[in-house]
Computed example of a mutant assay.
Amino acid sequence: MKLFKLLIVFFILSFQACSSQIEKINGVSFVASREALKKVHVKPVTSVNANYAAVMPFGFIKNLNHPEIVHNTDRQWFGETRAGAKQYIEVLREQQIKIMLKPQIWVWHGEFTGYIEMKDETNWKLLEDSYTSFIMEYALLAQEVNAEIFCIGTELEKFIVNRPKYWNNLIAKIKNIYKGKLTYAANWDEFKRTPFWSDLDFIGVDAYFPVSESKTPTVEDCLNGWKEHKPVIKALSSTFKKPILFTEFGYRSVDYAGKEPWKSDRSMNQVNLEAQTNTTKALFETFWNEDWFAGGFVWKWFVNHNKVGGLDNTQFTPQNKPVETVLREQFIKF
């Protein structure tokens, strides 16, 4: 009997140790809305077994060469503002959802933020001042609400390449007021060149890697596609001794979902739920068991769950699609 009890204790301790080793950041990218967040809006998040949400207030720029970031104004949707982000976080916290605060920039007409680049020194200085005002406002909020992770920027490669000293100084300023974990959301083809990973806690990657040329890729197709990218990602983690965090991941429910996953082209309008499901399954299978991989945030999750996504939807959201079941089953494992 004594031996039996010892075996039971050993089993429990072993199970707890294994569980602690494989726990991941199972996150959703929570899209800002016009309205305040309510408990009913969070229930679908917990139902999919997510333990994190990325809360994403926004700043706006007129064009790629414009230095002024407009943010936290009464012309924005509530969820895009400081007050809205704080209210979202408070409601998510009540349901035991942890937080990555991820302020982002939107360029007019949806132009790619990685191409933001000023034409002269004067405008670079103006952009730096404007970005500092924007990001420090939310660094202060991150500290105020004790956000577990703060993301210092999203897909801003030309800004970083042209002004590396600014970013080093900015990170130091953020660390003076925010005491949680830091990351930066580098685009999938940018992360290898990001110069300041040693100063952050996670190597953040928006994981829109091409993994298959097929109209309806199989899981095996995508697993093979990841063989090109995974060693590069792992090597960077090893070099900097930092875990990889997919600050965004996901696929549209369209034909050729794994070919150019970053595209939001309206001409891609052929619904393909199987393509979205298979690409997502392969991503989980490739990364979620790795000890150097921290987890990630699926792109993207809307407030009013019952009114979005669905079987005729071609966009990224997993809501009310077969891939939502994939998320639920994978997240509960970790």
Rank of each mutant, 00 (worst) to 15 (best):
S130D: 10
K119Q: 15
L141V: 12
T113R: 05
I160Q: 04
N146D: 11
H109I: 13
I135P: 04
I160S: 01
I171S: 08
E148D: 15
M118C: 10
L156P: 03
N123Y: 14
I177G: 00
L127S: 02
C151Y: 01
M136I: 15
N123H: 12
T132K: 12
D120W: 07
A147L: 05
F159L: 03
R163E: 09
D120R: 01
T122I: 14
I160M: 02
T122V: 08
N176T: 10
I135V: 14
V161F: 07
I149F: 02
Q143I: 12
T113F: 04
F134H: 10
E111R: 07
E157Q: 11
N176I: 02
K175I: 03
K119H: 14
A142M: 04
I177P: 02
A147G: 09
K173D: 15
V145E: 05
E144P: 09
C151E: 12
E155F: 08
H109V: 06
E155K: 03
C151F: 06
A172H: 15
W167G: 07
A147C: 09
P164C: 04
N169W: 00
T154M: 12
Q143S: 11
S133F: 14
I152Q: 07
A147R: 04
L156G: 04
T154A: 15
I135C: 07
Q143K: 10
N146I: 00
D129E: 14
T132I: 14
G153W: 04
K125F: 07
S130V: 09
V145I: 11
D120G: 01
A172K: 01
F150V: 08
I152F: 03
P164A: 06
E111G: 01
I149R: 06
L170F: 07
L126N: 02
G114M: 00
Y131V: 01
K158D: 13
V161D: 15
L126K: 15
L156R: 02
M136T: 13
N169C: 00
